[in-house]
Design a binder for these strands. Structure first.
Lengths: 339, 339
DNA sequence: TTGTATGCGTTATCAT
DNA sequence: ATGATAACGCATACAA
């Protein structure tokens, strides 16, 4: 089963030329006489020559690969960014190498070391749990790019979206529909994005002269279950509210189930807004109003940007906007009604 | 930014020994006098030596990496298998290298070539659109393992679940609840798994003396939209049915939306069964009854199996069972009621 | 235009 | 036990 790989040497012998000539033809690095070129090319075909990646990379110093580390590959959110990166790289000679950080600093650290060890030419972090200091350190060792996290001192290598704005427009939408008692289910307290979304929520409220009610802020962790339980408890506490803004779609699903259990209809009784616009939310019942993050486009742009930087080309970090996708989970407040 | 990497040579010089000695210590391949060992170890630390993966792999012929190609990384179904593989490999010296086939033979082919070029020690295909012949051919070049597809001639390298059984138990569940007119939304016609699930559905029907009604078979493609539209059309055609079995969870969501639009309640009016038990289906409203595929465990077992085979250890391909997870989207047929 | 020789950073094979 | 040195497969500076 293990056929010995044919080397450039054998090709040279078969074609009756030197290995340099073969190498030149493969890489197009110099002109070669037509007759020799033909001889070599047929030899290449006949023997089914495949250059050895390791030898090539060892000498050239370029591995033609980009390391990508996502907190979690399972998360559809990151997966879509990855898809964008992959898709851009498909048209290039570069190859992405994926790895997971598993939402844990030690794992992430290890994943990073592994990729550096594998000599990736650059690295993209999709989220990160490592301290700023550590990231700056890694940035000294290898061209590093970070999505979803702003690291002081390397801002030009970070792509962050305006999550404050996201929280703001989501809440604003609800207010414009006449809602006054708006619940917010937050993400993890130590998560930058979650903090920003909460700030956006709070600001939208205050701008409209609504008082910020801490009782309507439910502490979540981006997962369905916590949001489900918190919402259930809120309903049982008889707090009055007519709308919920969840800091991500998964928690929106959790909240939605709690409402369902209690016989509350969406959007007739309660309006619901999510965040992320995951694939599938368009097919929730009813389809979810949510803040769209252009993850696929971000991935593509990120891929392009990284390659440009690697080629020393001028390339500003791309910029993206969040938009609200209004579907059917929100509606105008029915006067006088409250939960 | 580009610090020159320290090599084994510099370490040797710093410790006052030869490179062979250093190599021996790094690899523990032979005994070394205690004093030299200490000298080398401090030099190793002081200089922050990191072995060069490329050079190492070039000579040893082992890249310590496993290529994994999924049809689509975005699909939560495959992502969970990947997570399992990753998790098992985490405790070993092996490293997974991921790639996507993008549900397209040319892309898949290219991804495979790329990974072979990168000298992965083995390759795992999570689904495949390539013809059997092609897969056998690749299996000649590199240790190849396939999940979700049975390839004639290399059965012992393929891990397949009994999708027939899955379709069977899903349908059977519905029948036991008293349903007679059961719709099936299929996957792509040329997809092995989809065919098997359909067969399971059909067999369960026939075994119970129910006639197979082709009109109740909706042709889907594993995506929400198609299932949504087909279900909508079915309802509008006034066909009578009281239950739906969708060949995957995504299509179940599509069907569910169609029912919602038409004011049909689940499970009071129509019972619904999905397939895959994706993360999130437990938080659909209502939580979805679905066929559970132990994807994470499969990934782990697959990783372990591959490594064993690589070490020439005896290792039968692991075997897994499908189970039905009964949640709240199915209920006993209300006598006399039909859509 | 073409060939020879050297180097990339290791491990493996010899001697000693 | 240790040190030279060959070898891995390729690219490239230099010589011709």
């Amino acid at each position: 089963m293990k056929k010995r790989n044919v080397t450039i040497n054998e090709v040279a012998r078969a074609a009756g030329v030197s290995i340099s000539t073969v190498s030149r033809i493969i890489n197009g690095s110099a002109f070669v006489a037509e007759d020799k070129r033909e001889a070599v090319e047929t030899a290449l075909k006949d023997l089914g020559f495949q250059p050895n990646y390791l030898a090539r990379t060892l000498i050239s110093g370029k591995s033609m690969s980009i390391g990508v580390i996502a907190e979690d590959i399972v998360s559809p959110y990151f997966a879509d960014v990855i898809r964008g990166i992959e898709h851009h790289l498909l048209d290039t000679d570069y190859q992405p190498i994926l790895n997971s950080g598993h939402w844990s600093s030690p794992y992430e650290q290890r994943a990073i070391e592994t990729l550096i060890y594998r000599k990736v030419d650059a690295m993209i972090l999709l989220g990160s749990t490592l301290p700023d200091e550590k990231l700056r350190e890694i940035g000294e060792r290898i061209p590093l790019f970070v999505f979803g996290r702003s690291v002081p001192g390397m801002e030009e290598r970070c792509l962050v979206l305006d999550q404050f704005k996201g929280g703001y427009i989501a809440t604003r939408h609800l207010i414009e529909l006449g809602h006054r008692d708006i619940v917010h289910v937050t993400g993890p307290e130590n998560h930058q994005d979650a903090q920003e979304r909460l700030r956006g929520y709070q600001t939208a409220l205050e701008e409209s002269g609504l008082t910020f009610n801490p009782q309507l802020v439910l502490h979540g962790d981006f997962l369905e279950r916590t949001a489900y339980m918190a919402t259930l408890k809120l309903i049982e506490s008889l707090s009055s509210f007519t709308a919920i803004f969840a800091a991500n779609d998964q928690m929106a699903a959790g909240a939605r189930l709690a409402l369902y259990r209690k016989g509350l209809r969406i959007p007739e009784d309660v309006s619901l807004v999510g965040y992320d616009d995951l694939p599938g939310t368009a097919f929730m019942s009813p389809p979810l109003t949510t803040v769209h993050q252009p993850t696929y486009d971000i991935g593509q742009a990120l891929g392009r940007h990284v390659l440009r930087v690697l080629r020393d080309e001028e390339s500003p970090m791309p910029d993206f906007d969040l938009t609200l996708v209004v579907r059917e989970s929100t509606s105008r407040l029915h006067r006088g009604y409250r939960v």
